[in-house]
Write a protein that binds this DNA or RNA. Sequence first.
DNA 1: ATGCCTTACGCCGCCCGTAACCATG
DNA 2: CATGGTTACGGGCGGCGTAAGGCAT
Lengths: 295, 295
Amino acid sequence: MIVDPHLLRTFVAVARLGSFSAAARELGYTQSAVSQHIAALEADLRASLLRRRPVALTDAGTRLLEHAEPLLLRLAAARADVTRLAAAPPARLVVGASAPAATSVLATRLADVRAAWPLAAVTVRVLERAVIAARVADGTLDLGLVDGIAAPTDPLHHPDVGPLTALAVTQEPLVVLLPAGHPLSGRRGLHLTDLADARWIDAPDAAMPLDRLRIACGSDGYRASLRYEGTDVRGLIALATAGHGLALLPESAVEGTTTGVAVPVTAPRLTHRVEVLHGGLPAGPAALLAAALTG
Amino acid sequence: MIVDPHLLRTFVAVARLGSFSAAARELGYTQSAVSQHIAALEADLRASLLRRRPVALTDAGTRLLEHAEPLLLRLAAARADVTRLAAAPPARLVVGASAPAATSVLATRLADVRAAWPLAAVTVRVLERAVIAARVADGTLDLGLVDGIAAPTDPLHHPDVGPLTALAVTQEPLVVLLPAGHPLSGRRGLHLTDLADARWIDAPDAAMPLDRLRIACGSDGYRASLRYEGTDVRGLIALATAGHGLALLPESAVEGTTTGVAVPVTAPRLTHRVEVLHGGLPAGPAALLAAALTG
DNA sequence: ATGCCTTACGCCGCCCGTAACCATG
DNA sequence: CATGGTTACGGGCGGCGTAAGGCAT
């Protein structure tokens, strides 16, 4: 009746690694067991999930994978969440932050956090946005700081991996960074919709990912002419001011930049927002620390 | 390592029924097996989940329940989703709709649906908003119609039970229904924020639930002076126009009402929105029908 | 011929039911 | 004392490993 999560875990491993034997090694099974797992899953669901030799997902398999990954995540989150309730608050704090806007917020508030909860060790881990909520849910992180684009009062949209509490930490204007001589560089404000066809730099780990922008604007534009994979804002600023494309950043990220011009976004009404995430224990240490961050 | 979903299912049943033996009956187990399930779960998570005699949830149990229910839902959804891919499109269509705004939309479009897909039997099931997404995900419903409050371009927020496709069907202004002699009845438009402390009727199944309104406005107000449990709008309109409280409705719901005054909501900028939900198969019948509804 | 997945088969462990036990109203 | 949860124990079954069997490259 109920789909066996062990089989799902095996299925996910096989799909990711593209090999039964590699999945078996990773999971500590024999190759045979993995084969039986997949066979059992296919029999249970009465659908072929994988094509063998070479191993590739069928349509049904692709579909199942979309369910299986969040499912396993939630399963881990459930365990972590309940266990966390019982366990004594540990003398350590692991904070995950999306880079670098959220990290800079953390830097300015970390003193408050340390004051609120004198901990032996604090670890800050810079991670991509998508995984932070998951790591908070499964207990790998005690606290998460995530930034994103949202209308002024709207909360950010986090992947649903369990009951998490999200609190706004900061909210500030978005700016478009232009090279010094750019035709628009004299403007006081910009309408993003006018820039849908401009040359953009997609810097998902250093600035705002363009796909988020597309979602926020409901537009197909904002295509990247350059992709910047890294978390160093200065590198991004250098590229943008050298004219390789526009960059969308929170206002604070461009403070002190003299080689380019940062023009605020005036429409649509979007802001850069940082939220802190924690597993919503009412009076736990994470909640205290979250309060210290928002206060 | 992985929390056994069978144990979770038993746990949910016990929590809901407040009894081990009742849960055993429902699940087709012996009382002993249920006891062993709960014991195993508690041992696995190293936490006490239930107090016995009387059976009541502990804090950890409450927490686990929040995870367990969506988890089991997703598990069912995963099975249904994959199975649905393989199965031939059945000659039947089950549509769930939140009452009554979404239902009336369905009434006006059902002819298009029948034209797009000649089916032997069409069933319309009126359900509360919260369960529709779940029933679409697990295949009980082929299509869901859900209404809600949202800012003009924003999508509705549906519970995350799997990869569902949501498409806007209609969007129309919200109105506040006032009795004829009400001081505000002469107004051309109303600011909802001015009405946070007014006397409201909470009619979750006939109009907009006030808790949604509170979320949309980020306000603690809009408390109910009367709760109306039913799906008949005419009954609600009668109560509102008789002065028992204000009602928040989509404009179309009050068409033809002469005993009261309906004043449009002008701020904040919120609209009544109906969306159709289906399990996102690209070319399946549900997608065709969804297109017929939106077209 | 050699990976790589599948099938056959036996053993171990888990899970459920029976039944005796115990606690609480 | 009765109702209802717990504990003890045994049998059945499912799942994993070993090993042999296809089947491509």
